[in-house]
Design a protein around this nucleic acid. Sequence first.
DNA 1: ACGTCCCTTGACCAATTGGTCGAATTTTCG
DNA 2: CGAAAATTCGACCAATTGGTCAAGGGACGT
Lengths: 223, 223
Amino acid sequence: MTPTSDGNTARAGQTRKRTRIQEENEEKILDAALEVFSTYGFRGATVDQIALLAGMTKPNLLYYFRRKDDIYLAVLRRTLEMWLTPLEALNPEGDPAAEITAYIDRKLELSRDDPKASRLFAMEIMQGAPILGEILSGRLKMLVDEKAAVIRRWTGEGRLAPVDPYHLIFMVWATTQHYADFDVQIRAILGERVERADHFETAKRTLERVFLGGIATGTNNSS
Amino acid sequence: MTPTSDGNTARAGQTRKRTRIQEENEEKILDAALEVFSTYGFRGATVDQIALLAGMTKPNLLYYFRRKDDIYLAVLRRTLEMWLTPLEALNPEGDPAAEITAYIDRKLELSRDDPKASRLFAMEIMQGAPILGEILSGRLKMLVDEKAAVIRRWTGEGRLAPVDPYHLIFMVWATTQHYADFDVQIRAILGERVERADHFETAKRTLERVFLGGIATGTNNSS
DNA sequence: ACGTCCCTTGACCAATTGGTCGAATTTTCG
DNA sequence: CGAAAATTCGACCAATTGGTCAAGGGACGT
């Protein structure tokens, strides 16, 4: 994993104009790469497999991304912003319970709508985060510190039950991403129920209820 | 991934006596294999790497496990029972809140004491559970169905807030296993705090509080 | 229609992979 | 001890891997 971080896609004739074909093919490649990397991780994925799924030959793929590392990096980059957004959107001025509910909802929707992104990060982190490591202890840590401070203020003001803000955030990550990362297991256990329209709603309602019951102060949400 | 499921370890002279050396080496191999498979998954792991970590040559390793599949299978098998135990131990006759608390504690301790096992299953499931698939929809599903019925009874009797039992179990899995699977991320964010003695206690307390607050009926656990 | 750049690919390469084999070494046990 | 069995490992193999290269085919503005 060499730090081949040149500007964009490491194609041959460096900063040309971006052709139509280039645009199309890079997208096809990144889609295929997301699929493969999110299933097998960096080491388990093969360039041939990605090329096949992208509908092109391996040398052709390597014309757009010269090394396996470059593809991986590009996919991670493309997915990163989307992944950080939900927590960034947590509003310090809002109502605690409503903000946390909204955060759970956003994360859960992301797990439903883009499970591959979730799995991609999961694989990267489980393999020791060789690429994302710096971002985790840099940008992500700063973001979490900031939002944890907000939550701590809320609990300090008595607007939230006294829970450790970091572990609360971890719990939200864990529970929401679980639906993407362990989809296969959930399907095995719930069977065809997963296909039913209310499956997602049930998951959401359960998460909201447990979290809100666990952190709300004063009134006890029953019913 | 051929179904080479012969009795035990697929060694050459089939059902001999199990030598001392055999016992020792198989253990060394399985330990090394757990380390490697749990980090890179089946496809990302290499036999050479496992052999190196086990302190022997590749042909020597392959004398004990003839194929990569056999090693993988043996590791999964060795880890499976331990992994199912906590849920099996959930006592239908016990006090709902106490039983669920105890379940959370057991799972969390397992994540702390054997994070590699957690990661091994996570990798297997994320790669589509090619091996464990049948167990997930067979034995695991039966176990979960059974315990979900217990929880449903509890909520029906008003001894637990009305939450979907399956998703409640998923939440416990997600939150507890998160500490093993995403250890690297947690370390990046919490920094040296992870090393402090009270880290585990804080995690446990937070989980218990949120879950119990979320599912307890009647009294509202604060402080 | 033409020249220029872009795109595509078959053939190829060195390294790595999972796995075999036979010869040598060590362990076991009567 | 001594022989049979168990273990170890260097050498080897075919397949797969990430990656290169040169030559041909296509797109596009003029």
